[in-house]
Computed example of a mutant assay.
Amino acid sequence: MHAQKTRYSFSQALFHLIAIAFCAFTTIPFLLTVMVSISGESSVIQHGYSLFPDTFSWDAYRLIFSGDEIWRGYMVSIAVTAIGTGLGLLLSAMLAHTMARQKVKYRNGIALFIFITMIFNAGLVPWYIFVTKYLHLKDTLAALILPMLVNPFHVFLIRNYFKSLPPALMESAEMEGAGPFYVFAKIMLPLSTPIIATVALFYSLAYWNDWGLALWLIDDRKLYPLQFILFKIQSMINYMSTQGNLVSGSQTLPSETAQMAMVLVTIGPIILVYPFIQRYFVKGIMIGAVKG
C-alpha cells in the first residue's frame, strides 16, 4: 500500500512538473513580447531580446498611437468583426441545417456546390472585377464583410455536428406543429453551443486579422481596419530604417520594439474573447470534424 501511494505521489508530482513546464513555455514568449515592446531600441539592437532589458522606452507605443487613425482603425475592426461574425455564423448555420436535414430534396447537390468552392475559384482578377464593378463594394464597410461572409469549411463543420444530433428531437417538434425556423432557433442552435462557439471563434479571428480586403478594396482612410493601419506603419518604419532616417536627429526608429508593440495592440481585444469560448473549442471541433 505504501509503495502504491509513493508511486501515485511521484506520478502526480511528475504531472504537475510537466504542466508547469508547459505553462512556462507558453507564457515566457508572451512576457518576452511585452518586455521587448517597452525596451529601448538601442538596447534590443545591442543585446537582443531579453526579459530584463537595460533601458525602457515607450517610443514604440508613442509611434503607433501618435494619431487618431489607430483608434478609428480599432472601431472599424471591431464593427467588421462583430457584424461579420454574427452574419457569417447565422448564414453558415442555416445552410448547414438545410444540408443536414434528410427531408431536403437537393441537399446533396447543395453540398457538392459548396464543396467545389473549396477546391476551385475564379482567380483574383475576376473576383476583383465582380466585387467592384458589379457589386459596387469599393470603399464601403461591406467590402470588408461580404467577401468572407460564408466559409465552406465552417459550413461543413456545423453540418456534421447537426447530423450528430438525434433526428427524433426535430421530428417530435414538427409533429407538435413547430415550423422549420422554430426548430432551427429553439432546438438546433441551443443544442449546438460547442460548434457554434468554435465557428464563431474562427470567424472572429479571420475578420480581425484580415488586412488583404482593405488593401484591395479600400482607399478611404476612414475605413482602414486596424491590421491594415499597423501594416502601413510597419512598412513605413522598415522603409525609413533602411534609408537611415532618424527620429529627432539622434534616436533610431523603434523598428524591433514596434513589431512587438503591434503584436500586443493586435491581440488585445481578441484575447478577451477566447477564455469564454475555449471550453467549447475541443468538443466542437472534434465532433464537427469526425461525425457524418
Score class of each variant (00 low, 15 high):
3 A>P: 01
12 Q>F: 08
13 A>F: 14
13 A>N: 11
19 A>N: 09
20 I>V: 13
24 A>I: 08
25 F>T: 14
26 T>I: 13
27 T>C: 15
31 L>H: 11
39 S>P: 03
43 S>C: 02
43 S>E: 12
44 V>K: 04
49 Y>C: 00
51 L>D: 06
52 F>N: 10
55 T>V: 09
55 T>I: 05
57 S>M: 11
61 Y>T: 03
61 Y>F: 08
64 I>C: 01
68 D>R: 04
73 G>E: 01
73 G>I: 01
79 A>V: 10
80 V>N: 00
80 V>R: 01
82 A>H: 02
84 G>P: 05
84 G>N: 06
86 G>S: 10
87 L>Y: 12
89 L>Y: 08
89 L>P: 05
93 A>H: 14
93 A>K: 11
96 A>W: 12
98 T>W: 08
98 T>R: 11
100 A>Q: 10
100 A>L: 06
101 R>I: 00
102 Q>M: 11
103 K>V: 08
110 I>V: 15
111 A>F: 13
119 I>N: 02
119 I>M: 03
122 A>Q: 14
123 G>E: 00
126 P>D: 03
127 W>K: 10
128 Y>W: 05
128 Y>H: 03
130 F>N: 04
130 F>S: 03
131 V>D: 00
133 K>L: 02
138 K>Q: 08
138 K>G: 07
139 D>H: 11
140 T>Q: 06
141 L>I: 14
146 L>G: 03
151 N>Q: 14
155 V>W: 08
155 V>G: 07
157 L>D: 05
158 I>F: 08
162 F>Y: 15
163 K>G: 00
165 L>H: 07
166 P>N: 10
173 A>V: 11
173 A>L: 11
178 A>E: 05
187 I>V: 10
189 L>S: 06
193 T>N: 03
193 T>V: 14
196 I>R: 02
196 I>V: 15
196 I>A: 04
196 I>T: 06
196 I>M: 15
197 A>F: 03
198 T>I: 01
199 V>S: 03
199 V>E: 02
201 L>T: 01
203 Y>K: 09
207 Y>D: 07
208 W>D: 00
219 D>H: 15
220 D>L: 02
222 K>P: 00
222 K>S: 13
224 Y>M: 07
225 P>K: 01
226 L>Q: 08
231 F>D: 08
231 F>K: 15
237 I>D: 04
237 I>Q: 05
239 Y>R: 09
241 S>F: 15
241 S>P: 00
241 S>G: 09
242 T>S: 10
243 Q>N: 11
245 N>Y: 12
246 L>S: 12
249 G>H: 09
250 S>T: 14
252 T>R: 12
252 T>L: 15
254 P>W: 10
255 S>W: 13
255 S>R: 13
258 A>T: 14
260 M>S: 07
261 A>L: 07
262 M>H: 06
264 L>T: 05
267 I>E: 01
267 I>L: 06
270 I>E: 02
271 I>P: 02
273 V>R: 00
276 F>K: 13
277 I>F: 12
278 Q>Y: 07
279 R>Y: 08
284 G>P: 02
285 I>G: 06
287 I>Q: 10
291 K>R: 10
291 K>D: 04
291 K>G: 06
292 G>T: 08
292 G>V: 04
